[in-house]
Design a protein around this nucleic acid. Structure first.
Lengths: 341, 341
DNA sequence: TGTTAGCACTCAATCAATTGGAGTGCTAAC
DNA sequence: GTTAGCACTCCAATTGATTGAGTGCTAACA
């Protein structure tokens, strides 16, 4: 048995209808809803076939049909309409240029959440492959020195280092020179043991300090330490009955609070990047356990200078995929417009 | 009519019972629950009095009684037992020393949430009255300079400034000297127009740049900009039926997401500080609209160097006040132990 | 052979009626 | 002042009947 034209049309109608109403869809509805001019009985036959093929399922006998994960997948892959243009008009400029990238990201998360009525997350750019632009050590007081690193894209990391004894200004200057001449222009992850030991050697009696500093760099830049994730619209979960019961909602809220879990999603999404940069995970396809009953749409943003990160929209499986994808694309374009130049 | 010894005992019993069970308390229960050896009928008479006085109320005729806000207030003010010692034993060391204060605060929020099963929030210390310890301007590239300020308590602020044209190293050095000699040791808020214009004058042709820098300080240090708030355990709201319905839970989640609202609570709590540092807001007493059906317990922490902030625990009105207050006190002591030295 | 009308059947959802029980207020007796 | 007892109230849970949307199947039709 195969999916002929008509079955596709019916499946599409079922899904469209279900996305709108959230209620199982019956044969009579489809019979009227489509322009196929078929009786409900015929539809019923076709629906029985579609069910056998696994595209739709019945919550219980004598109920209408709802799409299965397989059904959604087919829809997303082949039937979605590009709503981008329509969306575009409505929200032609929602983002404001922000100096601090964190604030921009928070803004994106919020705008997306209010526009889609789903929960959103956005990861701060991964620093992988990002070049060190500038390093500065300064003496704060006798026992503390401040290390500041500026990375390409003007992201700033800093940490306070404890030193066992005071360091005089001259040494300080030398260390600064040493670090800058050796490390500028390097990607953070390129700093390997060889380079470190070379640096230590050059530092002479201060090799311990160099060690400390490098360690501090490593720590402040390690992916999991660094992977800041902002979320918004978590209360939207409560709007969808299929997610709103205590058990599920609680788990979801927890996932959004313990952001470590979300980072899995970020990794996954960055790894499996598609041409458009947009990916859809339906139900069990998501890498995160607590989202089994959700669908997740992710996009990769790129602010230039290798500052890439992931945006995600998390909602019920019956989310408005067309709108979500459209909105994401729009926002991505706006980000491009704001930052690419 | 007055609150004699017996009425107090009965009221206390009602509240205790209700805190445990969450169900309206009947006269028979109290009759057995207390060591007063009174029949249910007598209790009923007393309860009628207590209701008339406004300490308890009936959800409907022929139901038991629940405490009113006034009742809770009396309980909190005069009947609470100090559970600190008991709590202390159970959680003798939950906090680990953290270098970065943000991480410590997040940790506190999380520990409190998991220990109490309520939602928690904690504000980063206000920088008011905090002295500037160290200022450093560095040239990142021709058009950008990096300004870093270290404040007493090793809190770091930084921002990237745009400059119209390149500045040579010598000028840079001078500017650094100028800023450090003039501003070190000052509280941020002490920097007034007089000082600024004096600085500008000394800077000569670079007075514009000084202006920029000062502005940037101001911005990065402004209370509302600075008032970072961390939250945890928001999913706990769903555990309490009286807060778990969509409407209320959604509002609460929203309040916790839009952290601006929470800052009201921080202000209020810092303002009305009590001797113990702990304050209890019951129902309508809270400054935040969406928490009308909640109680809020706040404490002020002090990490030394004027680094004060507010911790808050938000739960249903029938929260376990004794435990919450005890836990808060314990954590405050631990913070003291870790940081006061 | 595909389509349709018709019919019996299923099952969740809804509503009304019933019941049980927890709790009250009041009165009369101790 | 306290208590036993009783009538009363009202919620909550149970039951049963009803409804209606939807199905599968069969037989007739084009």
């Amino acid at each position: 048995m195969d999916l002929d034209e008509r079955k596709l049309k019916i499946l599409q109608a079922i899904i469209r209808n279900y996305l709108e109403t959230g209620e199982p869809v019956g044969s009579r509805t489809i019979s009227k809803y489509t322009d196929l001019n078929l009786s409900s009985a015929t539809i019923r036959n076709e629906m029985a076939d579609l069910e056998e093929l696994g595209y739709i399922l019945q919550p219980h006998t004598s109920a209408g049909r709802i799409p299965s994960d397989k059904g959604y997948r087919l829809y997303v892959d082949t039937m979605m309409q590009d709503k981008e243009r329509q969306v575009d008009e409505k929200m032609d400029m929602l983002l404001e240029k922000e100096d601090k990238i964190d604030n921009l990201l928070k803004q994106v998360a919020k705008v997306l959440a209010t526009n889609t009525n789903y929960a959103t997350m956005i990861s701060a750019p991964q620093v992988h492959r990002n070049k060190i632009k500038f390093i500065q050590l300064s003496k704060v007081d006798d026992l503390h020195i401040l290390a500041v690193i500026v990375i390409e894209g003007n992201m700033i990391r800093n940490s306070i280092l404890n030193v066992p004894e005071a360091i005089d200004d001259e040494t300080m200057l030398k260390l600064n020179m040493l670090l800058n001449t050796n490390l500028n222009g390097m990607a953070v992850e390129e700093i390997n043991l060889g380079i470190i030991s070379a640096l230590k050697q050059q530092a002479g009696i201060h090799s311990d300090l160099i060690g400390n500093i490098i360690d501090a760099f490593g720590e402040s830049i390690q992916p999991d330490n660094d992977l800041e994730i902002y979320t918004s619209g978590t209360n939207n979960f409560l709007k969808y009955p299929e997610l709103a019961d205590h058990e599920k909602a609680s788990e979801l809220l927890n996932t959004f609070e313990e952001k470590e879990n979300l980072s899995e999603l970020v990794q996954e999404s960055l790894a499996g990047e598609s041409e458009t940069g947009i990916q859809v995970y339906i139900g069990n396809e998501t890498p995160i356990q607590s989202m089994k009953d959700c669908s997740v749409v992710t996009a990769t943003y790129d602010l230039g200078d290798g500052m890439k990160g992931t945006v995600g929209i998390i909602g019920p499986k019956r989310m408005d995929y067309d709108k979500v994808v459209g909105t994401l694309k729009t926002i991505m374009h706006q980000l491009d417009d704001l930052y690419k130049k």
